[in-house]
Design a protein around this nucleic acid. Structure first.
Length: 671
DNA sequence: CAATGCAAA
DNA sequence: GGTTTGCATTG
């Protein structure tokens, strides 16, 4: 085939992309695109997947109790259902309704009803008790968190070279573009070189994709959704009682489309999506086989569409949304189903434009949208047209930045001692969770502790305080800090009854999981960074000599020490000088044991190290622009906003500029 | 940094 | 609906 013919084909043969509402869904893909490594969100071969666990909490309990896969099971939290597995949905059980335990058992003798694990007053660890009472117990989701971590780790292992962003306890986004690109080049080696007769060299469009049938990669959403304008399953909570979705389980290998040509890849991006789906499908299968969790996935060109696609068919299946199918898929969709449009913003938009579907909003111009909802609502405009430039950003560690233990009090408490009692329970949970996290990441500590409380009908109010670093984080220490906050927040006079108490750690930082331990860290700190090469006379900027304190191990000329200086009164200090910037960082405290000070210093050092790392990254992407001077407290986040070219996410709505006179009030009112 | 609010699962 | 989490905004 001549290239003139290719060009002809790529401009004319894809008539579907001419829909004026949906442009850019079928960009020409050239050899340059195929070879490029850093196209990021502009990659025309981008493949993103979202994978979520089916009825996750219920699945966890099934694994824990080793039930048969067909056992109907529900998870209870007090009197409400928080998870219903698919076999149980066949009974018409949904999460929304309220049930009581005995009622359920009577109606369905074979139904397993499990109450979530709870902390009991006084008990050190959560457990599955049969006498749960919201007055004395507190829910524990620890088991689910751990299982979630296992699944994430397995996905990571199965998918080398894939960016993974854990989006919640049961969901993750995958950017498989890189790996897919490699596979395309392996499978279609004739693409590895630009043909000699290519008219535009590397900017020549690729030849047409091979007409291989894509069969085992998942359900391909048709371009023309025949007699089913609304995709079933877009509603997350829809009970699977109808034959519709239960009849076609294992959708991965079943096609209802009689038109086989529909399933032929029409573009190289379609091929890429199929390869991405293969990768995800294999990983999902491995997770299913080894951990026992079934999942559903969506594969599409961006995060928002992947997320939407994942709910097309559940459970235990995956779907692919090709670009050509986007317009017809989106138009009838209730736009409130779109991520970040499900809340107040979504209802404000619905009201403003008297709209409910994506199609209803396509007639709204960008200008109108921005006039009503601020400059940044270009994000909304684009998302309605299938465009989403947000990146899949892998978190550095799987550790969360905050840890919250909370308890709602159906029977409000009226005296301080009850308050302290609950704080102890919450503190016990936090202690357990933090210390567990420290098993894999020893130098981990929360910068602050926060207490929230709701009194009467007012909203949540909060008080926070710095949380000191200690080697052992004890229940007592946390509870003491919590009690102090309680006094500031609610005082001793409980005229207003307390209906909710939450205790949280925030600003949790430390090394990465299983990466650098404290010892390893000192080694890592010097490797790769020259500077202090031959300077054996270790002196800081004040000329004080460093003393080896035994922490840094043999042959290690690291600038860390427990020198005692008397800079601040009589405060003993532990300090080090950064070999890169010469800054001295020290830790002083009258009360802290010196071992703890050293640990804290190690953490400071790590943080400082991270700062340099972040700064190096920033230099790469800003052409050497230094963002700010290094300091003890500068977190990795300093680089935020400089990382990607266009990481447009819904984040903030309106800013700086004058707020539009109209529309804003109702946006902030509750619906 | 402290406090509050929004959104999501 | 209850229990988390993360993020943005405002002071």
């Amino acid at each position: 085939m001549t290239f003139a013919a290719h060009l002809e084909a790529s401009s004319k043969g894809t008539g579907k992309a001419t829909d004026p509402d949906f442009q850019d869904l079928n960009p020409t893909i050239t050899y340059r695109h195929l070879y490029a490594q850093n196209l990021g969100v502009r990659d025309p071969l981008r493949v993103i997947a979202l994978c979520d666990s089916d009825a996750f909490y219920a699945a966890c309990e099934m694994v824990r109790l080793n039930t048969d896969k067909d056992t109907p099971l529900v998870v209870l939290q007090w009197d409400s259902l928080i998870a219903v597995n698919y076999p149980a949905r066949k009974y018409g059980i949904t999460r929304l309704k309220r049930y009581n335990f005995k009622e359920l058992k009577l109606k369905h003798p074979d139904l397993m009803v499990v109450h979530v694990a709870t902390y009991k007053e006084g008990e050190k660890e959560p457990g599955y008790w049969d006498d749960v009472d919201t007055k004395t117990h507190k829910v524990s989701l620890d088991y689910y968190r751990r299982e979630s971590l296992k699944i994430a780790a397995m996905f990571k292992e199965c998918l080398p070279g894939v960016e993974i962003e854990k989006a919640s306890i049961d969901e993750a986004f995958f950017d498989v573009s890189k790996r897919v690109r490699e596979i395309i080049l392996e499978r279609y080696p004739y693409l590895a070189q630009v043909p000699l007769d290519a008219p535009n060299g590397i900017d020549t469009p690729l030849p047409p994709p091979p007409p291989i049938p894509q069969s085992e990669v998942g359900y391909i959403i048709p371009i023309n959704p025949c007699e089913e304008p609304k995709a079933e399953g877009v509603q997350a909570d829809e009970p699977a009682v109808e034959g519709s979705s239960s009849a076609k389980q294992e959708g991965g290998s079943v096609f209802e489309d009689e038109n086989q040509e529909e399933n032929m890849p029409a573009t190289w991006h379609d091929v890429a999506l199929s390869i991405g789906a293969e990768l995800i499908g294999k990983a999902r299968q491995h997770v299913h086989e080894t951990l026992g969790y079934s999942t559903s996935a969506g594969v599409a060109v961006n995060k928002f569409l992947a997320k939407l696609t994942a709910s097309y068919k559940k459970p235990n299946s995956q779907s692919i949304l090709r670009n050509s199918a986007i317009p017809n898929y989106l138009r009838p969709l209730a736009f409130r189903k779109i991520r970040f449009l499900g809340g107040k913003l979504g209802s404000a938009i619905a009201e403003e434009f008297k709209a409910s579907t994506v199609g209803d909003l396509l007639s709204i111009t960008l200008e109108d949208m921005q006039r009503k909802f601020g400059e940044d609502s270009i994000w909304i405009y684009e998302v309605l047209r299938g465009i989403d430039r947000s990146e899949v950003k892998e978190k550095k560690s799987t550790l969360n930045k905050s840890m919250l233990a909370s308890k709602n009090l159906p029977t409000p408490i009226t005296n301080a001692s009850e308050g302290y009692n609950w704080i102890r329970v919450l503190a016990a949970e936090l202690a357990l969770r933090l210390n567990e996290a420290r098993e894999t990441c020893p130098n981990l500590w929360p910068k602050t502790i926060v207490l929230h409380a709701r009194q009467g009908y007012s909203g949540l109010r909060s008080k926070q305080a710095p949380f000191p670093f200690t080697r052992e984080v004890t229940v007592d220490a946390i509870a003491a800090a919590g009690d102090k906050l309680w006094k500031e927040l609610v005082g001793i006079d409980l005229a207003m009854k307390v209906t909710s108490v939450q205790l949280a750690f925030t600003g949790i930082e430390g090394a990465e999981v299983g990466q650098r331990s404290i010892e390893g860290f000192f080694k890592a700190g010097q490797s790769g960074k020259r500077q202090r090469d031959d300077d054996e006379d270790d002196r800081d900027e004040f000329g004080r000599a460093f003393v080896d304190d035994g922490i840094a191990d043999e042959g290690n000329d690291i600038a860390t020490t427990s020198d005692t200086i008397l800079a601040q009164g009589n405060t003993p200090a532990v300090s080090f000088v950064c070999p890169r910037c010469g800054k001295r960082i020290s830790c002083h405290s009258q009360t802290m044991p010196s071992a703890d000070q050293e640990d804290q210093l190690a953490a400071f050092r790590l943080e400082h190290d991270d700062f340099h790392f972040a700064q190096d990254l920033a230099k790469e992407s800003t052409g050497g622009l230094v963002i700010s001077g290094p300091s003890k407290g500068t977190p990795v986040g300093a680089v935020k906003g400089h990382m990607g070219p266009s990481n447009t996410s819904p984040k903030k709505k309106k800013r700086r500029k004058e707020r539009p006179a109209m529309g804003i009030e109702k946006f902030f009112k509750k619906s």
